[in-house]
Design a protein around this nucleic acid. Sequence first.
DNA 1: AATGTGACTTTGTATCACAAAGTATTATGT
DNA 2: ACATAATACTTTGTGATACAAAGTCACATT
Lengths: 95, 95
Amino acid sequence: MEFDKLVHQPTRLQLFAHLYANGETSFSALTDDLEITEGNLASHIGKMEEADCVAVNKQFVDGSPQTTYRLTEHGEDLFEAHVQTLEELIDGLDS
Amino acid sequence: MEFDKLVHQPTRLQLFAHLYANGETSFSALTDDLEITEGNLASHIGKMEEADCVAVNKQFVDGSPQTTYRLTEHGEDLFEAHVQTLEELIDGLDS
DNA sequence: AATGTGACTTTGTATCACAAAGTATTATGT
DNA sequence: ACATAATACTTTGTGATACAAAGTCACATT
């Protein structure tokens, strides 16, 4: 039973889950939905990028910058593995 | 979606799960099963005690000290709530 | 009394999350 | 062209945290 610290950390776990469930999502949508500060989001997303878990897309929409993020395949794989680890832990409670 | 840091931390999450599933467990069984050092176990269990999540029982068995731990009701409640939070996160992935 | 075992406690360190404030990029308005 | 505004970061500082390693303590047996 191993926990990947990158994925398990609460804020990032929610980021992974959000991106996994909702697909490509904008910076501001993430700060709004997860109720975290911009600095914090940038920091956590940065670590996910470094680990090749997240791909970034920057563009201008209606005259304003808009950055969107999505999970890479590797990010999806890591998250799925982590969810499985959690499910195993939960399933093991019945025994 | 809130994560209780006390419960979510990987080593303690496994401690909670182990005590929840197996009931009263000895110090040495915990270091063996979770593969953590004695110092580390003492430290994490200490935090769980402080939070009234764990009850301790010290005795001598066959001339050797043996400490056992079990979850308090409060500990069980906290863990169950946390598991539910995790399940909700996982269930939300389908949408 | 001396030794041994189990269960801690102490000490030190490196990492980390977070908040707050500062900065950079580009668009729009005048 | 210049100033301003909006988004998306980056920097700085701080307090908390996990962990390893080593030291200590209580009690029982010999």
